[in-house]
Amino acid sequence: PVSFHSSVDDPLEKRVSTVGRVHPHVEVKAIDADGATVAVGAPGELCTRGYSVMKGYWDDEEKTREAIDPDGWMHTGDLATIDAEGYCNIVGRVKDMVIRGGENVYPREVEEFLYRHPKVREVQVFGIPDPKFGEELCAWIVLKPGQTATDQEIKAFCAGQIAHYKIPRHIRFRTELPMTVTGKPQKFLMREAMVDELGLVTPKTA
């Protein structure tokens, strides 16, 4: 549901870098994996409650229970930060978060940094299984026409600019990225391709 909006009176920086502040008569919060509200400015799963939240999925009680808890909070699956002024920034998806050696890495943050490289046209970052760290970062990159680059060049661009554990260990250059018909990246296909290429074993979680 639409839970935030920007005002014409908001600073330009906030209007272009956030989704705005919460609507009147709507509640929002960002929570951690245990359901506790995170500190101001810390990333967590965005939850919303109010008149704009649906009652549930039509004839699907199981999906309704997955999305809406008994207190009426809808768990959006979005990772978000909410600053001290109430502005919300969507930083990724819960399912895309990578846990590398106990550190939470948000692929969108790494992607936005890599887009600053002058040769990069498109990039997607995702996690793949790793026997030492649990998960390791991988980046698929489409370069701008006429450009060439190496994985070491990309890593050197990251060094000293982002935390070392956020630098993708595996970098692959592609002519295009797998997308849905609506233009959304299909990270699961990229992940499957890397698992096959590297001969990795996907750990069982249950």
Rank of each mutant, 00 (worst) to 15 (best):
E61Q: 13
E85D: 15
Q186N: 11
G72K: 03
D130V: 04
R116P: 08
K14L: 14
G134Y: 02
K95G: 02
H25N: 14
R116D: 12
K29P: 12
K187A: 07
E109S: 12
E109L: 11
Q186E: 13
T180W: 01
T76S: 14
V195D: 05
L137S: 06
Q124A: 15
Y165H: 15
L79W: 01
F173T: 11
K187Q: 10
T37M: 09
K63Y: 03
D78T: 06
E197F: 07
M194H: 00
G56K: 03
K184Q: 09
E197Q: 11
D69E: 06
W73L: 12
V16H: 01
T48V: 15
R108L: 15
A156E: 14
R65C: 07
K55D: 11
K63Q: 13
G20H: 03
F188T: 11
A139S: 09
R100H: 02
P168K: 00
A33L: 12
A84W: 00
A84H: 10
E62K: 13
H25I: 06
A156M: 10
L137G: 07
R169C: 04
T150Y: 07
E111W: 04
I154G: 12
L198F: 12
P11I: 02
T148P: 12
D69L: 05
E27W: 00
A39I: 02
L79V: 09
W58H: 14
M194A: 15
R121D: 14
H164M: 09
G72L: 06
G72H: 04
V98I: 15
V110S: 03
H117S: 05
R49A: 10
D34C: 08
Q147E: 15
D34T: 13
G92Q: 01
D151I: 02
K166W: 05
Y106N: 08
A84R: 10
S7C: 06
S6D: 01
D9V: 11
A39P: 12
D78C: 09
D9P: 02
Y51H: 13
D196G: 00
S17T: 15
P129K: 02
V38P: 14
P43M: 04
T175A: 14
P129C: 08
A39T: 08
R49P: 12
G127R: 01
A163I: 02
Q152D: 15
K55R: 10
D78W: 00
H75Q: 13
N89P: 01
R100E: 08
E136L: 04
K144N: 05
T202P: 10
D60G: 09
L46G: 10
C88H: 01
V120R: 02
T48D: 00
S17W: 00
L79N: 05
M54P: 12
E66D: 13
M194R: 06
Q124F: 02
L79K: 07
V16L: 11
T180Q: 08
